[in-house]
Amino acid sequence: MELPPYLATMPMHAITEMHGEAGLRERFRLEIKVFDEDHQQRLDEALTLASRLHRDDRRSREPYVNHLLRVAIRMMHYYEVRDVDVIVAGLLHDAVEDHPAELAGCEEANGADESTVSDRTGAALEVLAERFGPRVARLVAAVTNPPWDPGRGRDEQYHEHVAASLEREPWARVVKISDFTDNGVGVIHSVGPKVESLARKYRPLVPVYRDLVTRADTPLSDAVRRHILDQLDLAEERFSAILDQPAHPA
């Protein structure tokens, strides 16, 4: 497929709609040209691993890897991130949560109790530490949801985990904010019954991310902070448009 020369400046969801995964991969290739050869190779290795782990995963109408590519590209292009560990963590931010057994090289993937899940998570993080360094593993751990406690609401536990884990990891905030932006601003690109449940899940987190973005220790420039705050405003508008519509008369 021949890709246009202006791909480097196109909005990511426009690339997704017009050129799909191939377009996002080419945009990723263009973005990583600013790094030296060793760092480019490391980023390519992370994308290869993420692509293998998520090869059968779908996200609404698209391959799941599209989401991972957008998270990484957003950090490089819009957040001005040049820390390769952070970009690698962005590509692999769902690897441990979604595919711990495969990442850890375990045979069993289903029917495990909580202690087994915890063991697999730890083993998966060890693999990431060996392949990409302990800092990458720490960042991924900070954005990995713990096993669900059946005695609690899923959304409540998710919100509490996000606030607590990002409190102590400023760079993990950057990964999670890019992830949240893709989920929140991009919610209008989703289809099906999950759209409303996703909006309900994510809307209470907007003030949490506003607070995290504006903290002095969050490693972003003032211009990037303003950009992210604008994106959070847009996400909130879209959540409201989905959730606050008046009921249609029968």
Rank of each mutant, 00 (worst) to 15 (best):
E156R: 11
E17R: 14
R168D: 15
L234Q: 12
L212T: 05
W148T: 03
P134C: 04
K176H: 15
L128H: 02
A123L: 07
V117Y: 01
W171P: 00
V34R: 15
P4M: 09
V86E: 06
L69H: 02
L92D: 00
H77M: 11
T214A: 14
P150Y: 00
V84N: 07
E236T: 09
W148A: 11
A235K: 05
P207C: 07
A14V: 14
H227T: 14
G153E: 13
E37Q: 11
A89L: 03
I15N: 02
E26S: 07
D179I: 06
S240G: 12
T116W: 07
T181F: 05
D56T: 14
V136F: 02
P193T: 12
D155E: 13
P193L: 11
E45I: 00
D98M: 12
R82D: 12
G151T: 05
H19G: 03
C106T: 00
S190P: 01
H189T: 08
R58G: 01
A72L: 08
V143C: 04
D182H: 10
L139Y: 06
S221G: 15
D85S: 05
G186E: 13
E107A: 10
T116D: 05
L205T: 03
A14I: 13
A8G: 10
H67F: 04
E80L: 10
E97N: 10
I177L: 15
A123G: 02
E102W: 01
K201R: 14
R61H: 02
G153S: 12
